[in-house]
Design a protein around this nucleic acid. Structure first.
Lengths: 197, 197
DNA sequence: CCAGTAACTGACTGATCAGTCAGTTATTCA
DNA sequence: TGAATAACTGACTGATCAGTCAGTTACTGG
Protein backbone atom coordinates (compact mmCIF):
# COMPACT_ATOMS: atom_id res chain seq x y z
CA UNK A 1 0.00 0.00 0.00
CA UNK A 2 1.22 3.45 -0.92
CA UNK A 3 0.53 4.98 2.47
CA UNK A 4 3.03 2.66 4.07
CA UNK A 5 5.75 3.47 1.57
CA UNK A 6 5.23 7.13 2.40
CA UNK A 7 5.44 6.40 6.12
CA UNK A 8 8.65 4.42 5.66
CA UNK A 9 10.21 7.20 3.58
CA UNK A 10 9.14 9.80 6.13
CA UNK A 11 10.56 7.85 9.04
CA UNK A 12 13.76 7.41 7.10
CA UNK A 13 14.06 11.13 6.40
CA UNK A 14 13.32 12.03 10.02
CA UNK A 15 16.00 9.59 11.12
CA UNK A 16 18.43 11.26 8.75
CA UNK A 17 17.62 14.96 9.04
CA UNK A 18 15.31 15.35 12.01
CA UNK A 19 11.71 16.40 12.37
CA UNK A 20 12.53 20.09 12.08
CA UNK A 21 14.01 19.75 8.60
CA UNK A 22 11.41 17.39 7.21
CA UNK A 23 9.77 18.77 4.07
CA UNK A 24 6.80 17.28 2.30
CA UNK A 25 8.63 17.85 -0.97
CA UNK A 26 11.56 15.68 0.16
CA UNK A 27 9.31 12.79 1.01
CA UNK A 28 7.83 13.11 -2.46
CA UNK A 29 11.25 13.17 -4.12
CA UNK A 30 12.29 10.07 -2.16
CA UNK A 31 9.41 8.13 -3.72
CA UNK A 32 9.41 9.96 -7.03
CA UNK A 33 5.85 11.18 -6.66
CA UNK A 34 4.32 14.64 -6.47
CA UNK A 35 4.18 16.50 -3.15
CA UNK A 36 0.44 16.71 -3.61
CA UNK A 37 0.18 12.95 -3.28
CA UNK A 38 1.70 13.02 0.17
CA UNK A 39 -0.78 15.67 1.25
CA UNK A 40 -3.58 13.70 -0.42
CA UNK A 41 -2.86 10.74 1.84
CA UNK A 42 -2.13 12.57 5.10
CA UNK A 43 -3.80 16.01 4.81
CA UNK A 44 -1.19 17.79 6.92
CA UNK A 45 2.50 17.47 7.56
CA UNK A 46 1.89 17.15 11.30
CA UNK A 47 -0.39 14.17 10.73
CA UNK A 48 2.26 12.64 8.48
CA UNK A 49 4.92 13.00 11.17
CA UNK A 50 2.68 11.56 13.86
CA UNK A 51 1.76 8.57 11.72
CA UNK A 52 5.34 8.00 10.63
CA UNK A 53 6.51 7.85 14.25
CA UNK A 54 3.64 5.56 15.16
CA UNK A 55 4.53 3.33 12.24
CA UNK A 56 8.19 3.27 13.29
CA UNK A 57 7.19 2.41 16.86
CA UNK A 58 5.10 -0.48 15.59
CA UNK A 59 8.04 -1.72 13.49
CA UNK A 60 10.21 -1.58 16.59
CA UNK A 61 7.67 -3.47 18.66
CA UNK A 62 7.38 -6.17 16.00
CA UNK A 63 11.11 -6.63 16.04
CA UNK A 64 11.14 -6.68 19.84
CA UNK A 65 8.51 -9.40 19.87
CA UNK A 66 10.56 -11.35 17.37
CA UNK A 67 13.74 -10.93 19.40
CA UNK A 68 12.24 -11.92 22.74
CA UNK A 69 9.64 -14.42 21.59
CA UNK A 70 12.11 -17.27 21.18
CA UNK A 71 11.97 -20.44 23.23
CA UNK A 72 15.44 -20.07 24.75
CA UNK A 73 16.33 -19.63 28.39
CA UNK A 74 15.58 -16.42 30.27
CA UNK A 75 19.23 -15.53 29.92
CA UNK A 76 19.06 -15.89 26.15
CA UNK A 77 15.84 -13.92 25.92
CA UNK A 78 17.31 -11.21 28.13
CA UNK A 79 20.38 -10.92 25.94
CA UNK A 80 18.27 -10.84 22.79
CA UNK A 81 16.17 -8.05 24.28
CA UNK A 82 19.23 -6.08 25.37
CA UNK A 83 20.94 -6.58 22.02
CA UNK A 84 17.85 -5.10 20.39
CA UNK A 85 17.49 -2.16 22.76
CA UNK A 86 21.02 -1.22 23.69
CA UNK A 87 22.65 1.51 21.61
CA UNK A 88 25.70 -0.70 21.13
CA UNK A 89 23.98 -3.32 19.04
CA UNK A 90 22.04 -3.03 15.81
CA UNK A 91 21.00 0.47 16.80
CA UNK A 92 17.26 0.40 15.92
CA UNK A 93 15.81 3.87 15.52
CA UNK A 94 17.68 5.56 18.35
CA UNK A 95 18.03 8.85 16.48
CA UNK A 96 14.31 8.80 15.83
CA UNK A 97 13.51 8.38 19.50
CA UNK A 98 15.90 11.04 20.66
CA UNK A 99 14.16 13.35 18.19
CA UNK A 100 10.91 12.13 19.66
CA UNK A 101 11.93 13.06 23.21
CA UNK A 102 12.48 16.64 22.15
CA UNK A 103 9.38 16.82 19.97
CA UNK A 104 7.36 15.22 22.74
CA UNK A 105 8.16 18.13 25.02
CA UNK A 106 5.73 20.25 22.94
CA UNK A 107 3.46 17.77 21.16
CA UNK A 108 1.38 15.53 23.40
CA UNK A 109 0.49 13.30 20.44
CA UNK A 110 4.14 12.60 19.69
CA UNK A 111 4.97 12.20 23.36
CA UNK A 112 2.30 9.52 23.58
CA UNK A 113 3.86 7.48 20.77
CA UNK A 114 7.22 7.33 22.48
CA UNK A 115 5.67 6.67 25.85
CA UNK A 116 3.75 3.67 24.62
CA UNK A 117 6.81 2.13 22.99
CA UNK A 118 8.77 2.77 26.16
CA UNK A 119 6.16 1.16 28.38
CA UNK A 120 5.79 -1.94 26.22
CA UNK A 121 9.56 -2.35 26.22
CA UNK A 122 9.73 -2.10 30.01
CA UNK A 123 6.87 -4.53 30.36
CA UNK A 124 8.67 -7.05 28.14
CA UNK A 125 11.87 -6.63 30.07
CA UNK A 126 10.06 -6.97 33.37
CA UNK A 127 8.37 -10.13 32.15
CA UNK A 128 11.69 -11.66 31.08
CA UNK A 129 13.25 -10.77 34.42
CA UNK A 130 10.35 -12.27 36.34
CA UNK A 131 10.56 -15.46 34.30
CA UNK A 132 14.29 -15.60 34.99
CA UNK A 133 13.72 -15.15 38.69
CA UNK A 134 11.13 -17.95 38.66
CA UNK A 135 13.59 -20.22 36.88
CA UNK A 136 16.33 -19.31 39.32
CA UNK A 137 18.51 -17.61 36.69
CA UNK A 138 18.18 -14.11 38.13
CA UNK A 139 17.95 -12.73 41.64
CA UNK A 140 16.11 -9.53 42.39
CA UNK A 141 13.44 -8.42 44.81
CA UNK A 142 12.05 -5.83 42.42
CA UNK A 143 11.79 -6.92 38.80
CA UNK A 144 9.91 -3.85 37.67
CA UNK A 145 12.33 -1.48 39.39
CA UNK A 146 15.27 -3.34 37.89
CA UNK A 147 13.71 -3.02 34.43
CA UNK A 148 13.24 0.74 34.93
CA UNK A 149 16.75 1.27 36.21
CA UNK A 150 18.31 -0.79 33.45
CA UNK A 151 16.26 1.10 30.88
CA UNK A 152 17.20 4.48 32.31
CA UNK A 153 20.87 3.56 32.23
CA UNK A 154 20.61 2.35 28.63
CA UNK A 155 18.75 5.50 27.60
CA UNK A 156 21.48 7.62 29.15
CA UNK A 157 24.19 5.57 27.49
CA UNK A 158 22.30 5.90 24.22
CA UNK A 159 22.67 9.66 24.40
CA UNK A 160 26.40 9.15 24.76
CA UNK A 161 26.55 6.58 22.00
CA UNK A 162 24.36 8.36 19.49
CA UNK A 163 24.69 12.07 20.18
CA UNK A 164 28.20 12.14 21.59
CA UNK A 165 29.46 9.31 19.41
CA UNK A 166 33.16 8.76 19.90
CA UNK A 167 33.59 10.32 23.33
CA UNK A 168 33.63 6.86 24.84
CA UNK A 169 34.08 3.53 23.07
CA UNK A 170 31.38 1.03 22.25
CA UNK A 171 33.11 -1.69 24.26
CA UNK A 172 33.10 0.56 27.29
CA UNK A 173 29.37 1.25 26.88
CA UNK A 174 28.66 -2.46 26.46
CA UNK A 175 30.75 -3.29 29.50
CA UNK A 176 28.91 -0.73 31.63
CA UNK A 177 25.53 -1.99 30.44
CA UNK A 178 26.41 -5.57 31.21
CA UNK A 179 27.87 -4.66 34.56
CA UNK A 180 24.67 -2.86 35.53
CA UNK A 181 22.49 -5.72 34.33
CA UNK A 182 24.63 -8.24 36.17
CA UNK A 183 24.46 -6.20 39.36
CA UNK A 184 20.69 -5.77 39.11
CA UNK A 185 19.98 -9.42 38.43
CA UNK A 186 22.57 -11.04 40.63
CA UNK A 187 24.53 -12.49 37.74
CA UNK A 188 28.25 -12.81 38.11
CA UNK A 189 30.67 -11.18 35.75
CA UNK A 190 31.52 -14.41 33.94
CA UNK A 191 27.92 -14.72 32.79
CA UNK A 192 28.03 -11.56 30.81
CA UNK A 193 27.82 -13.02 27.32
CA UNK A 194 25.01 -15.11 25.86
CA UNK A 195 25.46 -18.82 25.38
CA UNK A 196 27.87 -19.28 28.29
CA UNK A 197 26.98 -22.51 30.18
CA UNK B 1 24.71 44.58 28.17
CA UNK B 2 21.99 44.15 25.60
CA UNK B 3 23.48 41.04 24.02
CA UNK B 4 23.10 39.13 27.26
CA UNK B 5 19.46 40.12 27.69
CA UNK B 6 18.83 38.79 24.21
CA UNK B 7 20.60 35.54 25.01
CA UNK B 8 18.61 35.12 28.20
CA UNK B 9 15.34 35.76 26.39
CA UNK B 10 16.32 33.34 23.62
CA UNK B 11 17.26 30.59 26.05
CA UNK B 12 13.99 31.16 27.85
CA UNK B 13 11.97 30.86 24.64
CA UNK B 14 13.83 27.72 23.56
CA UNK B 15 13.16 26.22 26.97
CA UNK B 16 9.48 27.01 26.52
CA UNK B 17 8.79 26.28 22.86
CA UNK B 18 11.81 24.46 21.52
CA UNK B 19 14.46 25.34 18.99
CA UNK B 20 12.23 24.48 16.04
CA UNK B 21 9.61 27.08 16.94
CA UNK B 22 12.00 29.86 17.88
CA UNK B 23 11.39 33.02 15.85
CA UNK B 24 13.57 36.08 15.84
CA UNK B 25 10.40 38.16 16.06
CA UNK B 26 9.40 36.44 19.32
CA UNK B 27 12.72 37.21 20.93
CA UNK B 28 12.23 40.83 19.92
CA UNK B 29 8.69 40.94 21.36
CA UNK B 30 9.97 39.45 24.63
CA UNK B 31 12.33 42.40 25.05
CA UNK B 32 10.13 44.96 23.35
CA UNK B 33 12.68 45.79 20.68
CA UNK B 34 12.65 45.48 16.93
CA UNK B 35 13.53 42.16 15.25
CA UNK B 36 16.25 43.99 13.37
CA UNK B 37 18.08 44.60 16.64
CA UNK B 38 18.37 40.91 17.32
CA UNK B 39 19.82 40.37 13.86
CA UNK B 40 22.09 43.38 14.36
CA UNK B 41 23.67 41.69 17.37
CA UNK B 42 23.84 38.11 16.11
CA UNK B 43 23.71 38.28 12.29
CA UNK B 44 21.87 34.99 11.89
CA UNK B 45 19.30 33.03 13.81
CA UNK B 46 21.58 30.00 13.92
CA UNK B 47 24.33 32.04 15.55
CA UNK B 48 21.80 33.34 18.06
CA UNK B 49 20.71 29.81 18.96
CA UNK B 50 24.28 28.59 19.31
CA UNK B 51 25.24 31.52 21.52
CA UNK B 52 22.11 31.19 23.62
CA UNK B 53 22.85 27.54 24.33
CA UNK B 54 26.46 28.35 25.10
CA UNK B 55 25.31 31.07 27.47
CA UNK B 56 22.87 28.69 29.15
CA UNK B 57 25.62 26.10 29.54
CA UNK B 58 27.85 28.69 31.15
CA UNK B 59 25.06 29.65 33.56
CA UNK B 60 24.68 26.00 34.46
CA UNK B 61 28.40 25.58 35.02
CA UNK B 62 28.49 28.63 37.27
CA UNK B 63 25.70 27.20 39.36
CA UNK B 64 27.43 23.82 39.45
CA UNK B 65 30.63 25.43 40.72
CA UNK B 66 28.62 27.24 43.34
CA UNK B 67 26.85 24.07 44.43
CA UNK B 68 29.96 21.91 44.65
CA UNK B 69 32.51 24.50 45.71
CA UNK B 70 31.50 24.49 49.35
CA UNK B 71 33.79 23.40 52.13
CA UNK B 72 31.57 20.59 53.37
CA UNK B 73 32.34 16.89 53.45
CA UNK B 74 32.52 14.82 50.26
CA UNK B 75 29.09 13.49 51.10
CA UNK B 76 27.64 16.99 51.32
CA UNK B 77 29.34 18.08 48.10
CA UNK B 78 28.07 14.95 46.37
CA UNK B 79 24.52 15.60 47.45
CA UNK B 80 24.74 19.23 46.42
CA UNK B 81 25.98 18.16 42.99
CA UNK B 82 23.24 15.56 42.62
CA UNK B 83 20.56 17.96 43.79
CA UNK B 84 21.69 20.34 41.07
CA UNK B 85 21.88 17.75 38.31
CA UNK B 86 19.11 15.30 39.06
CA UNK B 87 15.78 15.93 37.35
CA UNK B 88 14.03 15.62 40.69
CA UNK B 89 15.55 18.69 42.23
CA UNK B 90 15.50 22.28 41.09
CA UNK B 91 15.35 21.13 37.49
CA UNK B 92 17.99 23.37 35.83
CA UNK B 93 17.54 23.57 32.09
CA UNK B 94 16.65 19.94 31.44
CA UNK B 95 14.25 20.77 28.65
CA UNK B 96 16.94 22.83 27.00
CA UNK B 97 19.41 19.96 27.08
CA UNK B 98 16.96 17.40 25.79
CA UNK B 99 16.33 19.81 22.90
CA UNK B 100 20.07 20.05 22.55
CA UNK B 101 20.49 16.26 22.24
CA UNK B 102 18.15 16.22 19.27
CA UNK B 103 19.58 19.36 17.68
CA UNK B 104 23.08 18.03 18.25
CA UNK B 105 22.31 15.06 16.05
CA UNK B 106 22.47 17.42 13.03
CA UNK B 107 24.46 20.44 14.19
CA UNK B 108 28.02 19.76 15.30
CA UNK B 109 28.29 23.22 16.83
CA UNK B 110 25.30 22.60 19.09
CA UNK B 111 26.45 19.09 19.88
CA UNK B 112 29.75 20.54 21.07
CA UNK B 113 28.04 22.86 23.55
CA UNK B 114 26.19 20.02 25.21
CA UNK B 115 29.21 17.78 25.15
CA UNK B 116 31.38 20.29 26.96
CA UNK B 117 28.82 20.85 29.69
CA UNK B 118 28.42 17.10 30.03
CA UNK B 119 32.14 16.51 30.31
CA UNK B 120 32.70 19.24 32.88
CA UNK B 121 29.85 17.84 34.95
CA UNK B 122 31.34 14.34 34.85
CA UNK B 123 34.73 15.69 35.73
CA UNK B 124 33.31 17.49 38.77
CA UNK B 125 31.45 14.41 39.86
CA UNK B 126 34.54 12.27 39.38
CA UNK B 127 36.59 14.70 41.42
CA UNK B 128 34.07 14.64 44.27
CA UNK B 129 33.98 10.86 44.22
CA UNK B 130 37.77 10.64 44.27
CA UNK B 131 37.94 13.05 47.17
CA UNK B 132 35.34 10.97 48.98
CA UNK B 133 37.30 7.80 48.38
CA UNK B 134 40.46 9.46 49.70
CA UNK B 135 38.60 10.54 52.81
CA UNK B 136 37.16 7.08 53.26
CA UNK B 137 33.55 8.19 52.72
CA UNK B 138 33.05 6.29 49.46
CA UNK B 139 34.27 2.96 48.16
CA UNK B 140 34.80 2.35 44.47
CA UNK B 141 37.58 1.02 42.31
CA UNK B 142 36.58 3.16 39.36
CA UNK B 143 35.59 6.72 40.18
CA UNK B 144 35.37 7.81 36.57
CA UNK B 145 33.24 4.81 35.58
CA UNK B 146 30.99 5.39 38.55
CA UNK B 147 30.53 9.02 37.52
CA UNK B 148 29.62 7.97 33.95
CA UNK B 149 27.18 5.31 35.07
CA UNK B 150 25.50 7.59 37.60
CA UNK B 151 25.24 10.30 34.96
CA UNK B 152 23.78 7.92 32.37
CA UNK B 153 21.19 6.74 34.86
CA UNK B 154 20.26 10.29 35.78
CA UNK B 155 20.02 11.27 32.11
CA UNK B 156 17.70 8.34 31.47
CA UNK B 157 15.60 9.19 34.51
CA UNK B 158 15.50 12.79 33.32
CA UNK B 159 13.78 11.67 30.13
CA UNK B 160 11.17 9.98 32.27
CA UNK B 161 10.82 12.92 34.61
CA UNK B 162 10.73 15.66 31.99
CA UNK B 163 9.30 14.12 28.83
CA UNK B 164 7.11 11.45 30.38
CA UNK B 165 6.23 13.48 33.43
CA UNK B 166 3.71 11.71 35.60
CA UNK B 167 4.32 8.13 34.46
CA UNK B 168 6.36 7.53 37.57
CA UNK B 169 6.53 9.64 40.71
CA UNK B 170 9.30 11.99 41.76
CA UNK B 171 9.90 10.09 44.98
CA UNK B 172 10.39 6.92 42.99
CA UNK B 173 12.92 8.61 40.70
CA UNK B 174 14.75 10.05 43.68
CA UNK B 175 14.80 6.68 45.39
CA UNK B 176 16.21 4.99 42.31
CA UNK B 177 18.87 7.66 41.89
CA UNK B 178 19.94 7.39 45.48
CA UNK B 179 19.94 3.62 45.36
CA UNK B 180 22.21 3.66 42.31
CA UNK B 181 24.55 6.20 43.88
CA UNK B 182 24.68 4.23 47.10
CA UNK B 183 25.44 1.01 45.24
CA UNK B 184 28.16 2.67 43.14
CA UNK B 185 29.88 4.32 46.08
CA UNK B 186 29.45 1.66 48.72
CA UNK B 187 27.15 3.76 50.86
CA UNK B 188 24.51 1.98 52.83
CA UNK B 189 20.85 2.77 52.43
CA UNK B 190 20.64 4.74 55.66
CA UNK B 191 23.12 7.26 54.30
CA UNK B 192 20.84 8.34 51.49
CA UNK B 193 20.06 11.83 52.65
CA UNK B 194 22.47 14.68 53.23
CA UNK B 195 23.38 15.64 56.73
CA UNK B 196 22.90 12.18 58.22
CA UNK B 197 25.79 11.44 60.62
C1' DC C 1 29.55 70.68 22.26
C1' DC C 2 30.47 68.08 18.58
C1' DA C 3 32.33 64.13 15.98
C1' DG C 4 32.39 59.51 15.75
C1' DT C 5 30.51 55.26 16.84
C1' DA C 6 27.27 52.01 18.79
C1' DA C 7 22.51 50.85 19.35
C1' DC C 8 18.43 50.78 17.31
C1' DT C 9 14.13 51.14 14.04
C1' DG C 10 10.43 50.67 10.18
C1' DA C 11 9.62 49.27 5.95
C1' DC C 12 10.76 46.12 2.86
C1' DT C 13 12.02 41.75 0.01
C1' DG C 14 13.06 37.41 -1.46
C1' DA C 15 12.89 32.65 -0.57
C1' DT C 16 10.58 28.88 1.19
C1' DC C 17 6.81 25.59 1.57
C1' DA C 18 2.41 23.58 3.24
C1' DG C 19 -1.59 23.07 1.39
C1' DT C 20 -5.40 23.89 -2.62
C1' DC C 21 -7.62 22.89 -6.77
C1' DA C 22 -9.06 21.56 -11.18
C1' DG C 23 -8.16 18.19 -13.71
C1' DT C 24 -6.02 13.29 -15.52
C1' DT C 25 -4.93 8.37 -15.15
C1' DA C 26 -5.53 3.85 -13.04
C1' DT C 27 -8.39 0.34 -10.72
C1' DT C 28 -12.34 -2.08 -9.39
C1' DC C 29 -16.46 -4.35 -9.74
C1' DA C 30 -21.34 -4.74 -11.39
C1' DT D 1 -17.89 -2.26 -20.98
C1' DG D 2 -18.60 1.47 -18.52
C1' DA D 3 -19.46 4.00 -14.37
C1' DA D 4 -17.79 4.96 -10.01
C1' DT D 5 -14.08 5.67 -7.15
C1' DA D 6 -9.30 5.87 -5.78
C1' DA D 7 -4.71 7.43 -6.83
C1' DC D 8 -2.26 10.85 -8.63
C1' DT D 9 -0.35 15.38 -10.97
C1' DG D 10 1.10 20.37 -12.26
C1' DA D 11 0.43 24.75 -11.50
C1' DC D 12 -0.62 27.74 -8.24
C1' DT D 13 -1.19 30.76 -3.83
C1' DG D 14 -1.00 32.63 0.50
C1' DA D 15 1.40 32.92 4.70
C1' DT D 16 5.49 33.08 7.07
C1' DC D 17 9.96 34.93 8.37
C1' DA D 18 15.07 35.60 8.22
C1' DG D 19 17.65 38.91 6.84
C1' DT D 20 18.61 43.82 4.32
C1' DC D 21 18.94 48.63 4.15
C1' DA D 22 18.63 53.40 4.62
C1' DG D 23 18.13 55.90 7.88
C1' DT D 24 17.44 57.87 13.25
C1' DT D 25 18.56 58.15 18.12
C1' DA D 26 21.65 57.57 22.11
C1' DC D 27 26.13 57.50 24.03
C1' DT D 28 31.04 58.51 24.66
C1' DG D 29 35.40 60.66 24.73
C1' DG D 30 38.11 64.55 23.25
Amino acid sequence: MRREEILRATAHLIEEHGIALLRVADVAVELDVSPALVVYHFQTKDALIAEALTWAAQQDLDRLALATGGEGSSRDRLFAALAWYAPTGSERGWRLWIENWAAGLREPALRQVGRELDLVWKESLTEIIQAGVAEGDFVTADARGAAWRITALLDGLAVQAIVHRGVVGREQLTAWSMQAVAAELGLDASLLSPGTP
